[in-house]
């Protein structure tokens, strides 16, 4: 027996309530759960609600809300999502930390004498402003599509960090900050571009339907 649209919607609502709101994860987990529910109904002649509860019990350990400070200090995610996002965020955080450390060392050893060169400072600032404008446009595209994926979440997190840094730099602009600006830019930009690309790639496939 195939599930009706209403029954599929019910699964969708329950998964949302369980914190599974990233479409790139929810899409296949919803289908998997729906397949198991259909099998349960067919095998044991049970009704939708009992079958759904039984399947949810089987999924409990994978859907239990788990926290990870590496990913977010504001919200928790189902374990199956955390397990996959952890590695992605670990690589990101390590890259960011290493880039900044490496940059500070370069600044202390080689760039200190150039800090008063306004051409050099302006160069960094203009690159930063250009990138900020490009990423703001990306952010608007993601916002208006209204589709939430793990990649849009990663983009948003990085974007707010980038914005915070952008505001900070223009409030307290010194040459050392310009060097750091460039380093943050180098560290965050690839992640912002990658997240945007992956999100758009998913949205394109999803919206063809």
């Amino acid at each position: 027996m195939k599930l009706t649209v209403e029954q599929i919607d019910k699964i969708d609502v329950v998964l949302d309530k369980l914190g599974l709101d990233f479409l790139d994860f929810k899409l296949e987990i919803k289908d998997h759960i729906a397949c198991e529910v259909e099998e349960e109904i067919e095998m044991n002649q049970s009704d939708f609600n009992s079958a759904f509860i039984l399947v949810l019990e089987r999924w409990e350990s994978k859907l239990v809300l788990t926290e990870s400070l590496l990913i977010s200090n504001k919200r928790s995610f189902p374990k199956i999502v955390i397990d996959q996002l952890f590695k992605r965020f670990l690589i990101y955080n390590i890259t960011l930390a290493v880039s900044i450390l490496f940059g500070v060392l370069i600044y202390i050893n080689f760039l200190k004498d150039f800090v008063n060169d306004s051409l050099y400072v302006n160069f960094f600032n203009w690159i930063f402003i250009s990138c900020f404008l490009i990423f703001s446009a990306f952010k608007l595209i993601i916002y208006f599509k209204k589709i939430k994926t793990s990649y849009s979440y990663m983009f948003n997190q990085n974007f707010w960090l980038f914005t915070l840094y952008f505001v900070f730099v223009f409030l307290w602009d010194t040459s050392f900050m310009s060097v750091l600006t460039f380093l943050v830019l180098i560290a965050i930009s690839p992640f912002l571009m990658y997240s945007f690309y992956k999100h758009q790639h998913f949205v394109k496939k999803y919206q063809l339907l």
Binding site: L3, T4, L27, K30, D31, A34, D83, K205, L208, L209
Partner: peptide
């Protein structure tokens, strides 16, 4: 499922698998 999906996503990220999304039985 906890082992299958991470493995599939890893292979997809490595470019070994391609993904097609289709509407089947009232769902994607």
């Amino acid at each position: 499922e906890g082992a299958l999906y991470p493995a599939l996503h890893k292979l997809e990220a490595e470019g070994l698998l391609d993904v097609e999304v289709e509407r089947v039985d009232n769902r994607l």
